[in-house]
Design a protein around this nucleic acid. Structure first.
Length: 254
DNA sequence: ATGTCACCTGGTAGGTGA
């Protein structure tokens, strides 16, 4: 079984690239972030024609998430239960016995901003809910754009980024708290090329210079960790004409 | 080099968020 996550930065713009990528990587599950589509505009027919069922949770202009799957997703949940949120950031469902939670974590903008406080509240609420979900679903994967670089080795220039958004101690503590629920960062279960990033700023020729951050993650429960055989970042779509600023992350299970 | 992109409003540019 293969699962993947990709922040597409507008599905209206990137649908052809998603279809092309799926044709090359016929994964069982793909969660998308930043679809930036209202629910009435979601391209479920095009995805169905290619062989993927869709569950989606969108809004105007910003955010928006989706869960694409070969098999039907059941027990679908939109956003964090009990957490009042105007923003569409979570889609969850059970596919082939695996509980899949796809998240577009808040960016947080700057450590002293209201948006950062929201990011902290959001991550705390997510953690409490994921803890409940883990009790119900031993086979669980939490993946998406976390907007957190967990360690300095996930940052191209740790000195320049020290204390900046994505790299603050508070965000890293929130990430660590998710891991402490019993989840494993699947990417770090394997030897990886140094300077592996999942996001490169559109500015400053950052991709060409490989100046990026690893902020897109796949966390697996203990039962799934035992089945995990690979986890890679696929940089290829970042080389497309008109790419997303993020690359997909791919998980392979036995 | 703050060297980009996507989307909105309200218009042939400017603001916002990332």
């Amino acid at each position: 079984m293969q699962l993947a996550t990709w922040n597409v930065n507008s599905l209206a713009v990137r649908l052809p690239q998603v279809l092309a990528w799926l044709a090359e990587h016929p994964v069982d599950v793909l969660v998308l972030q930043e679809t930036k589509l209202t629910d009435d505009k979601f391209p479920h027919a095009e995805l169905a024609a290619a062989g993927w069922q869709s569950q989606w949770h969108g809004q105007r202009t910003y955010n928006g998430v989706a869960l694409l799957s070969r098999s039907t997703a059941t027990d679908v949940v939109r956003n964090i239960p009990g957490f009042d949120d105007e923003q569409a950031r979570v889609i969850a469902g059970t596919v082939d016995g695996v509980r899949v939670i796809g998240g577009y974590f808040p960016n947080g903008q700057a450590p002293d901003s209201d948006k950062f406080a929201y990011k902290m509240r959001w991550m705390s609420a997510l953690r409490e809910w994921v803890n409940d979900e883990l009790a119900r679903h031993p086979n669980l994967v939490l993946m998406g754009d976390f907007n957190v670089a967990p360690e300095d080795r996930d940052v191209h220039d740790p000195v320049a980024w020290a204390g900046q958004i994505h790299c603050t101690p508070e965000e890293r503590a929130q990430f660590a708290a998710l891991v402490e629920l019993g989840l494993a960062d699947a990417f770090r279960l394997f030897e990886q090329p140094p300077k592996s990033w999942s996001w490169w700023d559109y500015r400053n020729l950052a991709f060409r210079k490989n100046q990026g951050l690893r902020i897109d993650h796949i966390l697996v429960s203990p039962a799934l960790k035992a089945r995990t055989t690979a986890c890679i970042i696929d940089k290829a779509p970042r080389k497309n004409e008109r790419p997303s600023d993020h690359a997909p992350v791919l998980l392979t299970l036995d």
